[in-house]
Design a protein around this nucleic acid. Structure first.
Lengths: 115, 115
DNA sequence: AACTTGTATGAACATATCCGCATTATGGGC
DNA sequence: GCCCATAATGCGGATATGTTCATACAAGTT
């Protein structure tokens, strides 16, 4: 049994900010871009277009959101922009959630197989 | 300098599941319900209505989503249902993100004040 | 200056989702 | 059985967001 420590309720502002952050990760397209960047280290937009199949404007908008939130950064190379992941937190969160999803499926499997 | 370890790209299914999970936390209403439950340990729906001001139908729907995802559980007490947080992960994620939001603001403040 | 390449943005549409109202379903007490 | 209390669901309106097309903007080259 785990005791639940007393905890103050988050303010409405904090709730909004937390949910806004999670909302950034709630779209498969954005998550895919983040994972691609994490995978390759740094990519220009042309590579992202090729890797994901999304349109240029779409990628630009999603990267814009991620950049405003500080999750990606970019630097210029001539006319091109090269993006990179700017915060390791996203990867940590994904790993935590992935582990949880896996564990939940294992539990459900165990349920089906009897105890 | 931190080295980025090599990493395989997540499959489309995993991206969908990850983003679906984050989407559950992307709504202030759902996050508020989760925080209320975490705060009080366990609550019936009437208490949640009073605490949040949402309609009964809205709360029922949101709790339904959270329950299907395994984030909350409920037990009956007569005709009432008493809900509770079923997974500590949400709280962990919120704390991680909150810490990150705070740190980012501190960094921006430091920027404004010169180096 | 004009031209090219690469990126951001305005406009419009489609889709999803929140949220409440009214209704139905479920469980308990008589 | 009927009634009451509570929770779930069908429906509809309002709002937000994803997505694309076309266009404007920015940086570099000649």
């Amino acid at each position: 049994m785990r005791r639940t420590p007393p905890q103050t309720l988050p303010s409405p502002q904090l709730l909004d900010e937390l949910s806004a952050f999670f909302r950034l990760l709630s779209e498969p397209a954005r998550l895919q871009l983040l994972c691609q960047l994490k995978h390759s280290g740094a990519m220009d937009v042309a590579s992202l277009i090729e890797a994901t199949g999304f349109s240029q404007s779409h990628i630009s908008r999603q990267l814009g959101q991620l950049q405003r939130a500080g999750l990606v950064s970019c630097e210029r190379d001539g006319t091109r922009l090269i993006y990179a992941v700017a915060d390791p937190l996203v990867d940590d969160l994904c790993n935590l959630v992935q582990r949880r999803l896996k564990q939940r499926l294992e539990d459900q499997l165990r349920q089906l197989q009897g105890v």
